[in-house]
Amino acid sequence: MIKARITVTLKNGVLDPQGKAIGGGLAALGFTGVHSVRQGKVFDVELEGTDKAKAETQLQAMCEKLLANLVIEDYQVELHK
């Protein structure tokens, strides 16, 4: 079994009203000095098999085709050791 973590984040320059509201929430709790908050998504994926190169290719294809919207988001694939 191969375990991977995919992180999807908004591209730079894309407005993130949710992140902004969360930043406001942190300020309301008294956390000072929070310059900005950007909200993203994390997907933990388990793949059958042991071929890491194949897994990486497959995970990238998953990001390109569904998990990330490349108009607004970037993604990062991380294989667990």
Partner: peptide, 11 residues
């Protein structure tokens, strides 16, 4: 269609 629809600015 080009572009994307994101969360309303006022949430």
């Amino acid at each position: 269609l080009p572009g994307a629809l994101m969360r309303n600015q006022g949430l």
